[in-house]
Design a protein around this nucleic acid. Structure first.
Lengths: 247, 247
DNA sequence: CGTATTCTTGACCAACGTCAAGAATTGTGG
DNA sequence: CCACAATTCTTGACGTTGGTCAAGAATACG
C-alpha cells in the first residue's frame, strides 16, 4: 500500500491484468513529481516518453495567440498519457499538472519490449487510445450542442464515472480540484456563467461542491439533466469497475 | 488510373510507402459503395472491420435524444476509419456517407497479418490515429474558444490542408460538399448564423463557395482570420504533401 | 418542368459574455 | 494558531453573439 508500485497496481484497472503485471515490474520506469500548475510537457516540445499517472490530476490544454485557453482533456490516476506519442515530431498542445502529480515515464524501448513480451498490452494501449478519442468526440459534442448547465453536468458525470472505475470515489462524492475558472476553460464559457450555472445545479439539488469535493446525491438525475450516456467510456470492456463499497 | 487499386494507391499519401504496397496488394479487401446520406455503421452497432475511404467524403456524427446533431469528424479520401475499432464492443457514434463513398473493408485478421509482415504499418496506423485525436482536440478548441467566423474559417483551412495532402485540390479551390446545415452541425451553430458568417467571409474576400466548390484566394489571410496553425495535422511527418501543380 | 432542398433575409429574443467590485476561502510565513 | 495576501467565488448591471421563427428566393434534381 505504501510504495509506488502497489499504488500503481491499484490504479491499473483500465489495463488488462497481464499489462498490469508487466508494467508494474518494469525496471526502467522513472518516477517523477510535479507541483500543481506546473507544465509537464509543452506545445512545441518533442515527446520522448509515455507517461502513466500514478496520483493527482493532469490536464491537456491549448492557448491561442490572444490568450484564450481551452482545456482539452483530463488525465486521471491510472491514465496513460501520449501512447506512442513519440511517433510525432512535436506536441501540438501542453500537458500540465492540475494538482501535484506523480507519474512514471515509460521509454519507447521499454514499451517496445513490453509489447513484444506481452502482446495483450498492445491491445490494452489501443483500447485506452480509442477511449481517449471517443472522449474527445464527446467533449466536442458537449461544446457543440449542449447548454451551459448540461455541459457542466455532463463533465461531472464523466469525472465521476472515470474516478469510480479506478476506485477513487467515496460513496456519492469524489475529488474536484477544478476551480470555476478551470471549469470555464474546459466547457468554453466564462467564470461568471459557470458560477451561475453551478448555482442552478446546486439549487436543483443535483450537486454540491465543498472543500474541493464534488457530491452527486442522485447520479441518475444528474445524467438526465446532462443528457449523459456512459457508452463512450466503454467501461464494460474490462469489466473491472471497482466501486469502493459494493464492488 | 482506372481501377480501384491504383486509385487507392493515389490516396495513400498519409501512410508510409511500405504500408501502401502492403494494403494495396491485400487480396481480402472488399470494396463497398454507399450513396450520399447513407449510414455506413450506426451508433450501437458492433464494429467488425477497418475501413479505408477510396473516394467521397464520410463523416462521424452523434445525435442527442431531442434531435440535436453534432458532426464530429470528416473522413476524406485516403483516411482510414476506425483503426482497431473492433477492440470496442459497440460504436458510440455513427459513420455516414456525406457524398457517394467508395471504401474498402479490412478485416481484423487481414490487418493482423499485415502488421506482422510489415511492422511499419503498425506505426503508420498509430500515426494516423494520433493525428485523429489531435484533430478532435482542435475541433474541441474550435468550439470552445473561437467565434463563429473563426470557426468556419478554421474548418475551411483544415479541409484545404487535408485535401491538399492527398492531391485533391485544384489551384486555390477544393470540393465543398457540406451544406450550410452541415456546417452548422459541424461548428455548433444554427444555419442562419452560418449563413451570415459565410457572408462576412465572402465580403472580406476570404472565400467563395460556388457549385459545391470552395475557393480560398489567400490561404494565409484565411488562416490569420481563423487563428489557424496546421501543426496539429502533423503533415511534415510523412513529407508526402502532393500539391497538384508544383508538387 | 415541377418539386424538394438549400440559401437568404428580417424581426425579435435568449444565452452567454464583459466589466467591475466586494465577499469568502485558501494558502503561507511568523 | 493567527495575520495577511492571493486566489477564488459571488453578485449586479449591461452588452453582444448567436438562436428562434418564419417566409420568400434561388438552386438542385428527377
Amino acid at each position: 500500500m505504501g510504495n509506488i508500485h502497489s499504488r500503481k497496481l491499484e490504479h491499473f484497472t483500465q489495463l488488462s491484468p497481464a499489462s498490469k503485471i508487466a508494467l508494474s515490474t518494469l525496471a526502467s520506469n522513472r518516477v517523477c513529481h510535479y507541483g500543481a500548475h506546473e507544465d509537464i510537457i509543452r506545445e512545441g516540445d518533442r515527446p520522448h516518453v509515455m507517461r502513466l499517472i500514478l496520483s493527482g490530476w493532469a490536464y491537456r490544454y491549448k492557448q491561442l495567440y490572444d490568450g484564450r485557453r481551452q482545456i482539452l482533456a483530463l488525465c486521471l490516476p491510472g491514465n496513460l498519457c501520449d501512447h506512442n506519442v513519440f511517433i510525432l515530431r512535436e506536441m501540438d498542445h501542453t500537458l500540465g499538472a492540475l494538482t501535484p502529480v506523480t507519474l512514471t515515464e515509460i521509454t519507447p524501448a521499454a514499451l517496445h519490449a513490453l509489447t513484444l513480451a506481452h502482446p495483450c498490452i498492445a491491445q490494452a494501449l489501443w483500447w485506452e487510445t480509442l477511449v481517449n478519442v471517443a472522449t474527445q468526440r464527446e467533449w466536442t459534442t458537449n461544446m457543440g450542442c449542449r447548454y451551459a448547465v448540461e455541459r457542466l453536468a455532463h463533465l461531472f458525470c464523466e469525472i465521476f464515472y472515470r474516478l469510480r472505475s479506478v476506485g477513487l470515489i467515496e460513496d456519492t462524492s469524489c475529488p474536484m480540484p477544478l476551480t470555476q475558472s478551470d471549469l470555464a476553460d474546459t466547457t468554453g464559457m466564462t467564470t461568471v456563467h459557470v458560477n451561475r450555472s453551478l448555482q442552478e445545479l446546486r439549487t436543483k439539488r443535483l450537486i454540491t461542491i465543498k472543500h474541493r469535493r464534488l457530491t452527486i446525491p442522485d447520479l441518475a438525475a444528474l445524467e438526465r439533466r446532462a443528457l449523459f450516456s456512459p457508452s463512450y467510456l466503454h467501461l464494460n470492456h474490462t469489466g473491472q469497475r471497482r466501486d469502493t463499497k459494493e464492488g
